[in-house]
Amino acid sequence: MVNLLTLLVAGLANGSLYALVALGLVLIYKTQDVVNFAHGEILMAGAFIGFSAYTFLHLPYGWSLVAAVLLGGLLGAVIERVAFRRVANQHHITLAMVTVGLSVLMKGLARIPFGRDINTYPPAFKADRVVLWGIPISPQHLLTIAMAASLAVALYLFFRFTALGKKMRATQQTIVGAQLVGINTGNVFASTWALAAMIGAAAGVLAAPLSLLYPDMGTNFLLKGFAAAVLGGFESVPGAIVGGFIVGVVEMLFGGFVSTVFQQVSAFFIIILVLFLKPDGLFGRRALARV
C-alpha cells in the first residue's frame, strides 16, 4: 500500500513537470496552430538562466526563478517577433519546421558555454525529503506540484477575467474576427509566446535540480509534455494539466507493477489507447464546420 502511494506521489510530482511543459505547448498551439518543437529548449534556456543567476550572480533560488521567468518571457517574445511574425501565415508544417530549426539552434548555442559538463542546480530547499503519511517526498517535488496547480488556476483566471486573456481567447477563435474588432493580433501572438516561454522557463528551473543541467535536458521533457498535451486534447489548458499528471502516474505505476523495461514508453501506449477510443483527447472538442 505504501508502495502504491509512493508511486502515485512520485508520478504526480513528475507529472506536474510534464503538465507545465504541456501548458506551454497548448498555449502556442491554440493561438498559432503550431506545435512548438523548441519548447524543450525554452525549458532548457530557463534552467540555464536560473542556474547562471544562482551561480554567477549568487541570487537565492526564488530570485533566480523570477529572473528565469522574466528573461524566459522576453526570449519567447523575441522568438515570436524575429522568427515567426513574418511567416505566421505560412502553412503549419512550415511553422513547425521553424520550431525544429529553433530547437537545434538553441541547443547549439547552449553548448558553447555549457556543453562540456553536466551542471548541478541545487534544489529550492536544503532538506532532502519530508515524510508525509509514511511516504518520502522531496520538497522540490512538493514545490513543483504546487507550482503546477497554482499556474493552472492563475491561467484560468487570466483567460477568464483579464483583457489580455480575453483578447488571446478571441484571437484563438478567429484571427480575422479578432482583427476586425480592433485587436492587435501581433501583440497577442507575442504575449502568448512570452506567456508560454515563462511557463517553460519556470518548468526548467523546477526540473533542473531533479534532472541535472545540460543542453539536451529539454528533449525528454518535450516528449512527455507532448504526450500530456495530446492526451488532454491539445487545445485544452485543463487537459494539459490532467494529461501531465496522468502521464506521470501511468509511467510510475507501469514501472512499479509491470516492468521497468517499458516504463518510459508506457505512457505512449496509454495515449494510443485513449486516442483510439477518443480521438480528440480527454478534454478536446471535435471541430465542427457549418456548411
Binding site: T6, L7, N14, L210, S211, G256, T260, V261, Q263, Q264
Partner: peptide, 17 residues
C-alpha cells in the same frame, strides 16, 4: 534486474524494486 532509461530523471520504481 532493473532497467533505467537514458535521460531518466527519476528512479523511484527501480529503487523500490
Amino acid at each position: 534486474n532493473e532497467v533505467l532509461d537514458r535521460n531518466a530523471t527519476d528512479a523511484t520504481t527501480q529503487v523500490l524494486h
